[in-house]
Amino acid sequence: MTKTHVTTTINGEVTEFLCEPGATLLAVLRNELQLTGTKEGCGTGDCGACSVTLNGRLVCSCLVLGVEAEGAEIGTVEGIGGIDKLHIIQEKFLEHAALQCGICTPGLIVSTKALLAENPEPTEKEARYYLAGNLCRCTGYDKIIRAVMDSAEAMRGDA
């Protein structure tokens, strides 16, 4: 199988990779680029652990081909917060104990960031529906929703 050369921007950095045209963006991120923060829970679009942004839109990276990233802007959890300063959403998730095992957390952080970019003042119901594609089996969502609502408030305060 011949591999295709792809040039894309990941978390603001121009990145090149070679991939088989049938490979998913998720496989490329994890196996080619060692960006293992993006998780695979199902590979079929059902769990949201693989959530990334593609040109600003929230998508499942397991349902995007690596070759479709050509010329696009990708955002993964590795691009949120940093060594010296966590993003408010990350801080709130920690503060509210909104993770237990943490496998859903990268996806939820990416999704929450997308939610609050689209809707800085979501109601609880809007937050729950927006995040319905991010499965969490550990927490029962209570603390996640609290972290999301609190992040929204803190981010509005920051602005």
Binding site: L54, V59, G133
Partner: peptide
Amino acid sequence: IGSTQIQGR
């Protein structure tokens, strides 16, 4: 259709 993520595509 699907989730927010699915609707993104």
